Structure formats: C-alpha cells, structure tokens
Simulated scan of single mutants.
Amino acid sequence: MIYFDNSATTKIWPSVLSTYEKVANEVWGNPSSLHHLGQVAWNLLQQSRKQIADLYGVEPGEIIFTSGGTEGDNWVIKGTAFAKQQFGKHIITSSVEHAAVRNAMKQLEELGFDVTYLPVDDEGRVNPQDVQDAIRPDTILVSIMAINNEIGTVQPIKEIGEILKKYPNIHYMVDAVQAIGKGVDSMVFSDRVDFATFSGHKFHAPRGTGFVYKKRGRQIAPLIAGGGQEQGLRSGTENTPGDAAMARAVRLVQDGQAESVQRERAIKHKIIEHLKQFDHVRIFSKDDDSFAAHILCFAIVGVRGETVVHAFEEHDIYISTTSACSSKDEDTTSTLSAMKVPKKVAECAVRVSLGDQNTLADADEFNRVFDELYEGFKKIID
C-alpha cells in the first residue's frame, strides 16, 4: 500500500500510541481533582504543555489544548468576535481558507459581522497589499492560513504580519494545521502572530487532539463554558493521554523535520517531472519553496477527480480529491475556484499529500500506475 493522503490524516506513530496507552492505563485521574491521582495527571498535563512550548520557543501558558483544528479555528474566530465586538465587527480572511474557517465566518455574518474575503492570484496566494487596503477602523481580526490544504500554497504570513504591526489591536490568526513539521515554524511563530491552530492527527498524534497557540495578553472569549479548565478558556476534562501523546508526536516530528521535508520535496519533484509529459494534465502546485513540499495538486482534464481517486485505489494507492474534509460535499473546489480555474477543470483535480513514511520508490510506483491509468483514460479525454 502507498498512502498519499497525509493531509487528510496520518497514521499514529507506534511510540505515540504507546505513550497514549501507558498514560491511559497508569495516569487516569482527573487533572482537576485535588487528590494524588489528580495531581499526577495535572503534572503530566503541564509537562506536555511545556514540552510543546519549549519546542517552539513560547511560554507554556500560551499553549491551550483543544480537540483539533476545527475547534481551534472556530474558537479563535468566534472568541475574538465575541470579545472584541464592542470595538468593531469587521473581519478579514482569504477566499481559500479551510471549511472550518470559512463556515465559522459565515456564522458570524449571520450574527451581523462583516467579513471581507480577499482574492488570490493564479497560485492561490493572498497579496499582502490587499490586507492593508481592506483594514478599517472597525477591523478586529485577520485570519490567513499558513499552507493551503488543497494545493499547498505557502501564504505570506510574515509579510502580512509586518503590515499588522501598525495595527496592534487587530488579532492575527494563522490556521497552521498543514504547517507543522513542514519547515515553516519561524513563519507561524513570528512575533506578530497572535493565534495559531494545530491538529494532532495531521502529525501522527491521536485523533481528537490539538492545540492553539495564544499569545500572552491577547483577550479571547471562551467557546466552551464549564469547569474552567485550560485557564478558563477551554472547559472540559482534559484529554491527558491524548495530550501527552500529542506532545511526544510534536517532539518526534520536530526532530525529523529537516530530513522529512527534503525527502518530500524530492518525491514531489519526481512526480511533477513525470506528470509534465502528459498533454491533458494540469498541475496546480509548483515545485519550489513558494509551495509546501508535501502537497501536489493536479488534474487529468476530462476525468473527474473521484474517478481518478478510485482508479488509484484499485492499485492500492491512496490519494484524495482536493480536500478530504469536504470531498463528499458539492463544494470541493473552493481554492481552485478562487484561482479562477474553470469548474470543469477544477472538478478533475486530485491531491497527493506526502508524509515522512513515503519514499522515492513510492513515487516510481505512482508514476508507473499513472501511465497505466492515463492510457485507459484516453478514451474519455481524447
């Protein structure tokens, strides 16, 4: 089997799973309890928080545990809106955000907030000048993803941050779900980013884990009210085994980051060079540092994406349409549509997303199978 759908989810690492099982069996007290079992759980939770914070050079109190990227996105967006609405109701985002951001914005619009959706160029990238031009006296939040989940565009996070230094009262959020372990830490944790969201299952941690980086001093309303856990910002009994396992996964992915990114870029390059040979193939992801190393989006024009996905699956190769989170819905081409790619072409797009377990041999096999499939698709596209 060749698994090329790592942007949808990753397989939990054995040592991470071992950590989860050990903590679940041995440290099962509630971290909020006053007795010894609770204190042991509390201490482990804080150790896990500090481990993540130390790896990124931030304070432990700036790491808030969540259930994943969708919760994190919704919390930061709505929490900012609710906390700052007396100062304004204008939010700026891009037209290529993940559904968790896009749909949270739509909910706020229904509540009377005004959202500006910035256009992108033909590579799916926001122009920082457009951010500058969109800022108003009542702007309270700018939310731009770090790496696009559909085609892999790296957004100009630092450049936008430089602009926002002139507006210290505007919250700046980065959806970093596709960015962890991909060589862009300095961009995500730059001095002007106020919030960044992460999802554990994207980097070999258990599903249902995640964290938000919240810069010290930034005010945000809780999304989940209850017993006051996570500094009163995210109530609910903490997922101690999941968070401990996630902290281990963060350390492991950081340790192997440089080698992994280099290998992913080599695999991507090999596949792109092969795909360039075919007349009916359109490649949307560039083979340079302006795009993430692990995401490759292309289309066999004339063959719908789901057809291509299932054809590869018959050869035990697993890819996806442009976004696994919306691949079963009609809205599957948001980024390509924003890039003004014709709908008939966008519907043919598929995504190859690489992980640290993939090899150049996987690329060779993918290319071999592609040749076979393309030959069979000729009767459709010619």
Rank of each mutant, 00 (worst) to 15 (best):
3 Y>F: 15
4 F>W: 07
4 F>A: 10
5 D>T: 04
7 S>G: 12
12 I>F: 03
12 I>L: 05
17 L>Y: 12
20 Y>K: 02
21 E>H: 10
27 V>A: 04
32 S>T: 13
33 S>Y: 09
35 H>K: 13
42 W>C: 00
50 K>T: 10
54 D>I: 13
54 D>Q: 12
66 T>Q: 10
66 T>H: 08
71 E>L: 15
76 V>G: 02
77 I>V: 15
80 T>F: 11
81 A>I: 06
85 Q>F: 04
87 F>K: 11
94 S>L: 07
95 S>I: 15
97 E>A: 15
103 N>P: 01
105 M>P: 02
106 K>W: 10
106 K>M: 14
108 L>E: 05
111 L>Y: 12
111 L>T: 11
116 T>V: 11
124 G>Y: 00
126 V>W: 04
127 N>V: 10
127 N>S: 12
128 P>A: 06
129 Q>G: 03
131 V>E: 02
131 V>Y: 07
134 A>R: 09
134 A>V: 02
134 A>P: 00
136 R>F: 06
136 R>H: 14
140 I>H: 01
140 I>G: 01
146 A>F: 00
148 N>P: 05
153 T>K: 03
158 K>S: 15
159 E>I: 11
163 I>F: 10
166 K>L: 12
169 N>R: 02
181 G>T: 03
184 V>T: 09
185 D>M: 09
185 D>W: 09
186 S>C: 09
188 V>S: 08
188 V>Q: 10
192 R>M: 05
192 R>A: 05
192 R>Q: 08
192 R>W: 02
196 A>F: 06
200 G>E: 04
201 H>G: 00
203 F>L: 11
203 F>N: 04
203 F>G: 02
211 F>I: 04
216 R>G: 14
218 R>S: 12
219 Q>I: 15
221 A>P: 00
223 L>Y: 08
230 E>F: 09
232 G>W: 15
234 R>M: 12
234 R>H: 14
235 S>P: 05
237 T>A: 09
239 N>L: 07
248 R>K: 12
254 Q>D: 06
257 Q>L: 12
258 A>W: 07
260 S>I: 09
262 Q>I: 02
264 E>K: 01
264 E>Q: 14
267 I>T: 07
276 K>F: 06
280 H>F: 12
288 D>Y: 06
289 D>H: 12
294 H>F: 07
294 H>Y: 04
296 L>E: 02
304 R>V: 15
305 G>Q: 06
308 V>L: 04
311 A>M: 05
316 D>R: 14
316 D>N: 14
319 I>P: 00
319 I>C: 05
323 S>Q: 05
324 A>Q: 02
325 C>T: 12
326 S>H: 03
328 K>V: 06
330 E>T: 12
336 L>P: 07
338 A>S: 15
343 K>S: 11
348 C>T: 07
352 V>N: 01
356 D>G: 09
362 D>N: 13
362 D>E: 08
368 R>M: 09
371 D>I: 04
371 D>E: 15
373 L>Y: 06
374 Y>S: 00
375 E>Q: 15
